[in-house]
C-alpha cells in the first residue's frame, strides 16, 4: 500500500490530469481518422469524378448526335459532323488481335515459370517479363514506328499478302498495301504490351493451387501437362479469365504506342493491313487541334465511351479475381 502510493506521488506531477489528456487525444485521433478518411474518399471521388466530368464535357456531342454518335462513321471536323464508329471499331479490332497473341503466349510463360523452369531461373525470367510492363508506352511507340513498322512492311506483310491474301473468306483481312502501319501492327504491339500483365496474374494464381491437388494428379500417373490442363487450369479458371480481362482493359485504353503505329486514318476498311484509328489515338492526336466546341466535346465524349467500356471490363476482371482471393482466405 505504502509502496504504491509513493509510486503514484512520483509519477503524478509529470503528467497532465487524466481526463484532459484523453480528451485531447480523442480529438487528435478523430482528426487523424478524418484526414485519412478524406484521402480514402478521394479514390472514389477520382473515379466518379472522371466519369461525370467526361459525361458533362461530352454532353454537347451526345445531345447533338444522339445515338448516331456511336454508329456513324463520319468524322468531319470541317462540316462539324462526328461519329465514333471508326475509332470504336479500331479499338475493338486492335485489342482483339492483341488478345489473340497475348493469351496463349502468357499461358506459355506462366506454364514455363511454374512447371518447366528450374527454381534458380524462375526469379530472373519473371523479373525480365515484368520489365516489359515497366517500359513506358511512348518507348513502345518509338520502337514500333522506327523498328517494328519497317520490319513488318519489309518481311512480314509481303508474306502475309502472298500467302493469306488469296484465301477465301479471310483473304480480305490480309490483303492490302504493305505500309507497315495499320491494325495488325498496332494489335501485335498491344499484344506484347499486355503479355506481362496477363502472364503475371496467371503465374500467381497457378501458384495458389494446393500442392495436394497436383500431387494427387501425379500419383494417378498424369504428366505435367495433364496436371496443368486437367487440374491447375480448372481450379484457377475464373482467376485466369480475370487476368485476361485485366489485360484487355489495358489494351483498350493504351494510347501512345497505338498512336504511333495505327496511322490516324478515319476510314473503315476490312483489311487489317490498312491504317485505322482508335479511341485513345484519336483523342491524343486531335485534342490540341480541336477548333470548335462540338469537336472538343466529341473527343471528350469518345473518352467517356472508352472509360465506360474499360470500367466494365476491369470490374469484371476484379470480380473474377476476387472470387479466387476469397476462396484462398477460406
Amino acid at each position: 500500500m505504502a509502496i504504491s502510493s509513493t509510486a503514484h506521488s512520483v509519477a503524478e506531477p509529470q503528467r497532465p490530469s487524466a481526463p484532459d489528456r484523453s480528451a485531447a487525444e480523442t480529438r487528435q485521433d478523430a482528426l487523424f481518422r478524418g484526414l485519412l478518411f478524406g484521402a480514402a474518399s478521394l479514390v472514389l471521388i477520382t473515379l466518379g469524378g472522371a466519369a461525370l466530368s467526361m459525361l458533362w464535357g461530352g454532353r454537347l456531342a451526345f445531345q447533338t448526335f444522339g445515338w448516331h454518335f456511336i454508329y456513324s462513321a463520319d468524322w468531319d471536323p470541317v462540316g462539324r459532323h462526328f461519329g465514333a464508329l471508326v475509332p470504336i471499331y479500331g479499338t475493338l479490332v486492335s485489342s482483339a488481335i492483341a488478345m489473340i497473341i497475348a493469351v496463349p503466349v502468357s499461358f506459355g510463360i506462366a506454364l514455363f515459370l511454374t512447371e518447366i523452369a528450374p527454381g534458380w531461373l524462375q526469379g530472373p525470367i519473371a523479373a525480365a517479363i515484368e520489365l516489359l510492363a515497366g517500359i513506358p508506352s511512348i518507348i513502345y511507340g518509338m520502337w514500333g514506328l522506327f523498328s517494328f513498322v519497317p520490319f513488318m512492311s519489309d518481311y512480314v506483310l509481303p508474306w502475309i499478302n502472298d500467302h493469306l491474301g488469296p484465301l477465301p473468306w479471310i483473304g480480305a483481312l490480309f490483303s492490302g498495301p504493305p505500309l507497315g502501319i495499320g491494325m495488325l501492327t498496332a494489335g501485335i504491339v498491344l499484344g506484347i504490351m499486355v503479355i506481362p500483365f496477363i502472364s503475371s496474374v496467371m503465374r500467381d494464381v497457378f501458384r495458389t493451387v494446393p500442392a495436394a491437388l497436383k500431387e494427387s494428379a501425379y500419383a494417378l500417373g498424369s504428366t505435367t501437362w495433364e496436371g496443368v490442363w486437367k487440374v491447375v487450369l480448372p481450379y484457377t479458371r475464373s482467376a485466369v479469365v480475370g487476368g485476361i480481362f485485366l489485360g484487355l482493359g489495358r489494351a483498350l485504353g493504351e494510347t501512345m504506342a497505338v498512336t504511333f503505329v495505327l496511322g490516324n486514318a478515319h476510314q473503315l476498311s476490312a483489311s487489317l493491313l490498312m491504317p485505322g484509328n482508335s479511341i485513345a489515338a484519336t483523342i491524343a492526336n486531335e485534342f490540341t487541334e480541336a477548333d470548335s466546341d462540338i469537336y472538343l466535346s466529341s473527343l471528350i465524349a469518345l473518352g467517356f465511351l472508352l472509360f465506360v467500356v474499360t470500367l466494365i471490363v476491369l470490374t469484371c476482371a476484379r470480380l473474377l479475381l476476387y472470387n479466387l482471393a476469397r476462396r484462398e482466405g477460406r
Binding site: A50, M54, G57, F197, G249, G253, I283, A317
Partner: peptide, 10 residues
C-alpha cells in the same frame, strides 16, 4: 489499371 488518357481528360 484505368487508361491514363482518361485521367488527363478528367
Amino acid at each position: 489499371s484505368a487508361p491514363s488518357i482518361v485521367l488527363g481528360l478528367f
